[in-house]
């Protein structure tokens, strides 16, 4: 027992995986203006109390930070919480310590995607992917295309249920027949390709 404890202390008590996840997360958090305030959390629970959807989360926003401290990022990444957050920022504005809770949840979402820790046909990721595909291709979003692509990826049968609403909106002139494309779409893809590379670039942190 004692030997194990000593060994753990020598390794800083982080498993290899935890170390990796921690570094990626801290790098992301460093990009958020005010992100360093994550260290100042006093576990008061204002975030959880303010959250309109915390009732349906498996790990509440306060517990997210507690788990981060307890060196268990893996549990956070496999939670429902990071996906159910609608990014309303109620937690962020009420935090007495200035913790940027919403932006930290964004960072966790990105990390989970990077690590592919989510179920197949997972709704939030599928919607994001459909959206990104359309935005890249046309430079603009296209609502009907987004909904169709999303339901084809998750549950095609639910698409039928959307038809009455589509028709109603269509007759009110609120749905475009074809997606609009930006003029500079060729150059736009060049920008995107370069941005994709920049996404991978990890900066050397200045001392």
């Amino acid at each position: 027992m004692r030997a194990r404890k000593q060994k753990a202390e020598a390794e800083g008590a982080y498993s290899q995986k935890e170390k990796e996840l921690r570094n990626s997360l801290l790098l992301q958090v460093a990009n958020i203006p005010g992100g360093e305030s994550i260290k100042k959390c006093i576990q008061c629970g204002s975030c959880t109390g303010s959250c309109p959807v915390s009732y349906t989360m498996d790990i509440t926003p306060r517990e997210i930070i507690a788990l981060f401290r307890a060196r268990d990022i893996e549990s956070i990444l496999s939670s429902r919480t990071i996906w159910i957050c609608a990014s309303c920022y109620a937690c962020t504005i009420r935090c007495p310590q200035g913790v940027q809770v919403t932006d930290i949840l964004y960072a966790l979402k990105r990390l989970a995607i990077e690590q592919k820790i989510f179920p197949k046909r997972f709704p939030v990721y599928s919607l994001s992917k459909s959206f990104v595909y359309l935005a890249n291709r046309y430079g603009r979003s296209y609502e009907p295309g987004l909904i169709v692509a999303y339901f084809l990826k998750t549950n095609p049968f639910k698409l039928l249920g959307m038809i009455p609403l589509f028709l109603k909106l269509f007759f009110k002139g609120r749905i475009g027949i074809l997606p609009k494309k930006i003029k500079g779409s060729k150059n736009f893809s060049k920008i995107l390709q370069e941005a994709e590379i920049m996404e991978m670039v990890v900066p050397v942190v200045e001392s």
């Binding site: 964004y106 979402k109 990105r110 990721y125 992917k129 990104v132 941005a195 996404e199």
Partner: peptide, 8 residues
């Protein structure tokens, strides 16, 4: 959607 997946 985008902010949640690819920040840069």
């Amino acid at each position: 959607y985008y902010m949640a997946t690819k920040e840069t």
